[in-house]
Simulated scan of single mutants.
Amino acid sequence: MRVRSQLVRRVAATAAGLGLAAGAVVGIVGATAANAETKSTTVTASTAAVKKTVTIDGSDWIVPAGSKVRYFGKTTGIAKNTKVQVQRLEGKKWVNFPATTKVTSKGTYSVYVQTSRVGKHQFRVAVAGLVTKQQHLEITKK
């Protein structure tokens, strides 16, 4: 029984070491069940990686020049205070728009966009290497 317990501990330690070396989050959960005749040990190793996501409010807007438009959304797997950058499509290239915010402790964000450039625009939000779907914004003359 002693050799078996040592083997189980070594297997668990090896699994934990390999998981950490791979950059995964490894949890070792051990449960011991005792029986009057035999003793056995059960070890379970699991890896849990949180998928990073970001969403944006799905509304398209038509507003007069100079109006503020609020974009907001939720994130998962992204740390609090991570920078959220609004981007505008100019030609075929996405460029940073002068509007930023940070992810809250609840994984949400809210940012306002304001422009006087009349015409049709497309905006999106970029955070932690992820981007949202584009949002259409049409600016009309006042």
Rank of each mutant, 00 (worst) to 15 (best):
A31K: 11
T32F: 01
A33L: 07
A33V: 14
A33P: 10
A33T: 14
A34D: 10
A34P: 04
N35E: 12
A36M: 04
E37N: 13
E37L: 07
T38F: 15
S40M: 08
T42G: 13
T42W: 12
T42Q: 15
V43P: 00
V43L: 08
A45C: 12
A45H: 14
S46P: 02
S46V: 12
A48V: 11
A49T: 14
A49K: 15
V50K: 15
V50C: 04
V50P: 05
V50N: 11
V50F: 05
K52F: 02
V54T: 11
T55N: 00
T55F: 00
T55D: 03
I56A: 04
D57K: 12
S59I: 14
S59E: 15
S59K: 14
S59R: 14
D60M: 08
D60I: 03
D60H: 02
W61A: 14
W61Q: 14
V63W: 04
P64F: 04
G66S: 06
S67W: 07
S67L: 06
S67N: 05
K68L: 11
K68Y: 09
V69S: 03
V69Y: 02
V69D: 05
R70Q: 13
R70N: 07
R70M: 10
R70I: 12
Y71F: 15
F72V: 00
F72K: 06
F72N: 08
G73C: 03
G73Y: 01
G73H: 07
T75N: 00
T75W: 01
